[in-house]
Amino acid sequence: MGQYTASELWSITAMQSFAGFSLFSVLLLMALGLAIIFGQMGVVNLAHGEFMALGAYTVYLCSQLAHNYAPALIPVYFLFAIVAAFLASAIAGLFVEWSLIRFLYKRPLDTLLATWGLSLIMQQLFRTIFGAREVTPTLPDWLMGSFKPSESIDIPINGVFVMALTLALTGGVWLFMYRSRLGLRMRATVQNRNMSGAVGINTRWVDRLTFALGCGIAGVAGAAFTTIGSTGPDSGSRYIVDTFLVVVFGGTASLLGTIASAFGIAQAQSIFEFFLEGTMGKVAVLMTIVVILMIRPKGLFANKVRS
């Protein structure tokens, strides 16, 4: 790289690492909800991506509402829309758990097929309601534009926003899981369902709420993605393999593992994609992950417990 000056190299490094961090927050956002549903409950939810898309469409609906009825609210609507996205996906999650998942807890492979069916139905619903074209919500002005710390470095604000949201959400999930009563009950149910039932925890409701929480977080992730790209009926399915790989690679039972694996995969991917052509960079990353998973099937941070 002899043709670059030192300051240009510095800018490239800065932008490249920002791209890496940006991808890291995206992957982590996608994986958080699944880390709860798959990691804690062992339910393979292949419709996870569609719950993200549901969150994104909720934001789009909110933006349409704000645009048509209360233009004055446009600068602030986005914050409410995130809450709405959480609620919409969480309620949908509650319903899905009640109507489908609860019958399949003992049959993980069947859950996988049933949730794939669910994802097809949800995709077609999005297509019927919102149309096949991708949609973008009207974003408030403060989310547009970019910082320019120096002449050649250009850091988009929406990327920073997604990072901040990821940080807040990860902190929130950690607090919830390890510092709240309901989180305690969830972890207890995962570790020993019968004993939890025996001490008076309603494990059935805990399952339902855990599933809903995971879906709600997926909704927030979807809401965050509307600031980066547009949303189409099949947006969700594009993310699902990456999301699962992040969770499996990190070791399913640990939040820290998910964070570490999202970080590792994101950095690897942004570096590979810088040097290789688009899809081959992705192929290289996925291959690396699969090969590592073949050597360490339980992921990077496996809990050393009997199961």
Partner: peptide
């Protein structure tokens, strides 16, 4: 079980992307 299913799914993605990209 589920791990095998997820990893074979990733293999499907890898192979289709690799064919697509070359």
């Amino acid at each position: 079980g589920v791990y095998f299913a997820v990893i074979t799914q990733a293999v499907a993605l890898i192979v289709s992307l690799a064919i697509d990209g070359n």
